[in-house]
């Protein structure tokens, strides 16, 4: 039964759905690391965005557009604050990023009580979710279209953004300057680039991506806000960025891998495996992937050293 077509297409569509938030967040991490800033606050930005999207959704009587904007803006604001901390005030990116992540967990829980007088979960019939797109070939190839079942506009947008980021970084003048800053900020400064300004705006831009990811979480497959809605996806994105070497296309492949792990986990649970085990699959995969990537990195480094020795 597990090899039935409907089953496979369901796994694929769920993989794609699980992938998008990770993809958006890992693109955020990627542009930041290209600009030479270490950003680990995707988790927090995503959480804040998911929350304020629901808040504005509720108070505007179900306006999806305003909700998306609220999500993006709140995440951008958090990213900008983080950027000031790291770039201007020279705070440690790990400490500042962790502070943002921890704070946003507590803040959203508290504000949920302030706004909705509930704890843990907020759901309401007046909330509207993101509109779902039916592929244009649905009537001609219904089997194929099943693979894209339930994908929202923002899911599709995440893939367009991945391509745009690729073009932005490697084809435009500004992208080229950002990469140069990441490689050697002192050299860039010596040629008159306002390095901090570029880094600030890159981080703020990364906030937009995390914001979209947050909107997907609270208004995508389901429309609700639940405590710890991000459940570590921001950290998985960090690993995806690492695995994909901060290259947009590499990052996209890595995100797909983690999306697949998550969807596999939930399907195995349906097949009868214990939830505690299946739920840990994506995280175990993260640990494994980190180990594999760091071993690979070390091998490459050793090889480079050996080559360097032989060249000298």
């Amino acid at each position: 039964m597990i090899f039935e077509w409907s089953y496979i297409s369901a796994i694929i569509s769920s993989t794609l759905r699980m992938c998008s938030p990770i993809l958006l967040c890992s693109l955020a991490a990627a542009i930041c690391s290209k600009a030479g800033v270490f950003n680990i606050a995707m988790e927090g930005c995503m959480m804040v965005s998911a929350f304020f999207a629901i808040v504005v959704n509720y108070y505007s009587g179900g306006s999806v557009l305003l909700a998306i904007l609220a999500g993006i803006l709140s995440s951008m604001l958090i990213s900008a604050v983080l950027a000031v901390l790291i770039i201007r005030l020279k705070a440690s990116p790990v400490v500042a990023g962790m502070a943002i992540n921890t704070m946003s967990g507590g803040l959203t829980t508290y504000l949920m009580y302030v706004f909705f007088h509930t704890k843990g979960l907020f759901q309401n019939p007046t909330l509207n979710g993101l509109s779902k797109l039916t592929p244009f070939f649905a009537s001609a190839f219904p089997e194929l279209a099943q693979m894209f079942y339930g994908l929202t506009t923002v899911d599709y947008l995440s893939w367009i953004i991945a391509i745009l980021v690729q073009i932005f970084l490697y084809r435009t003048v500004i992208g080229y300057r950002i990469r140069a800053i990441g490689i050697n900020p002192e050299a860039a400064r010596s040629l008159g680039t306002p390095v901090e300004k570029y880094q600030f705006w890159t981080m703020t831009l990364s906030g937009i991506f995390c914001g979209l990811a947050g909107v997907l979480l609270s208004m995508g497959s389901v429309t609700l806000f639940i405590q710890n809605i991000t459940s570590g996806k921001g950290y998985i994105a960090m690993t995806a960025n690492n695995l994909g070497k901060s290259h947009p296309l590499g990052v996209a492949v890595a995100s797909l891998f983690f999306g697949a792990c998550q969807s596999l986990g939930s399907f195995l649970q349906q097949a009868g495996l214990k939830g505690q085990i299946t739920g840990s699959i994506p995280y175990a995969a993260t640990v494994l992937a980190s180990v594999v990537s760091s071993i690979r990195y070390r091998r490459q480094k050793e090889k480079k050293i050996r080559e360097a020795i032989s060249e000298n």
Binding site: V173, Y176, R177, R179, A180, I183, N184, E186, A187, A188, S190, L191, G192, T193
Partner: peptide, 20 residues
């Protein structure tokens, strides 16, 4: 030297005053 190692000679020379 103040150079961008992984980039090309061209990218290093024209930086901040690129033809676009």
């Amino acid at each position: 030297f103040m150079l961008f190692g992984p980039m090309s000679v061209t990218e290093n020379i024209v930086y901040n005053n690129e033809v676009s």
